[in-house]
Computed example of a mutant assay.
Amino acid sequence: MSKISPCLWFNGEAEEAANLYVSLVPDSRITKIQRNPIDGPPGQAGTVLVVEFTLAGQSFMALNGGMKLEHTHAVSFKIDCADQAEVDRLWDALLANGGEPSKCGWLKDRFGVSWQIVPSALPTYLGGSDSAGAKRAMQALLGMVKLDVEGLKRAYEGKSAA
């Protein structure tokens, strides 16, 4: 087990967020829920204080800190996706109920947490041996919101959109 794990700050939504995240990513689960032992900051006795969970084997902690703090793009979580279907599934699920899409495969979920939804083929196109193809793929990526695997491949190969 790693000695380092991210702690995400929430204002009462820690359990809801953790349940969403573990429902989306294989090899994920809630491992522990700790409740407030007393009334007072950050909440009433018996309410959820901490949720420990794993996403794809990585430990996380969600803390109900008792006040609203904003998450930023300065910290994001990248999910490598096997194919376009997985990109689409995760993109849609994380945007549901108030998430915000951004550019280049980034989004903020309804809790304000930033995610990068990235097809595992991306390094093939951006770091491939064809430097002109890599430049075309990068230009294509810069014009995308949700990443499109076929669009990146066509750009890398120098083929126009179908």
Score class of each variant (00 low, 15 high):
V75T: 08
I30P: 01
N64R: 04
Q84Y: 11
E15T: 02
T47L: 07
A45S: 03
A17I: 08
Q84T: 04
S23M: 07
E13T: 11
Q58Y: 10
T31G: 03
A56K: 08
N64V: 01
E15G: 01
P42C: 06
P41M: 14
E15Q: 14
V48W: 10
P37R: 14
P37N: 09
A62T: 02
A85R: 13
M67E: 15
N36D: 00
T31S: 13
T72I: 15
S76M: 12
Q84V: 06
V25A: 03
A82Y: 08
A56M: 07
S28Q: 03
P42N: 03
A82P: 01
P6F: 08
L24K: 10
F53E: 00
E15I: 04
R29D: 12
G46H: 05
G46F: 03
N36S: 02
A18W: 09
T31K: 06
K78V: 11
L49M: 14
I33P: 02
N11Y: 14
A74H: 07
C81F: 12
E16A: 14
P41V: 13
V22A: 05
L55D: 02
D80N: 12
S76E: 02
A56N: 10
R35H: 15
K78Q: 13
T47V: 01
K78I: 11
V22I: 15
Q44Y: 02
L69V: 15
A62I: 05
T54I: 14
D80C: 05
S23A: 10
A62R: 06
G57Y: 07
L63M: 15
T31N: 11
A56G: 07
A62L: 10
G57E: 02
R29F: 05
C81H: 14
F60M: 04
A45D: 00
Y21W: 15
R29T: 10
E13V: 05
A17P: 10
L20C: 09
I30Y: 05
I79H: 06
T72L: 14
V75H: 06
V51F: 05
I33F: 09
G65W: 08
G40R: 11
A17S: 11
V22H: 01
E15W: 08
M61E: 07
N36K: 07
A82L: 13
D80R: 13
F53H: 00
S59V: 07
S76F: 13
R35E: 13
G12N: 01
F10L: 09
P26G: 03
P42S: 05
L55Y: 12
S28I: 02
C7E: 10
K68T: 15
G57V: 04
K78Y: 12
V51C: 04
A14I: 07
L8W: 12
I38Y: 10
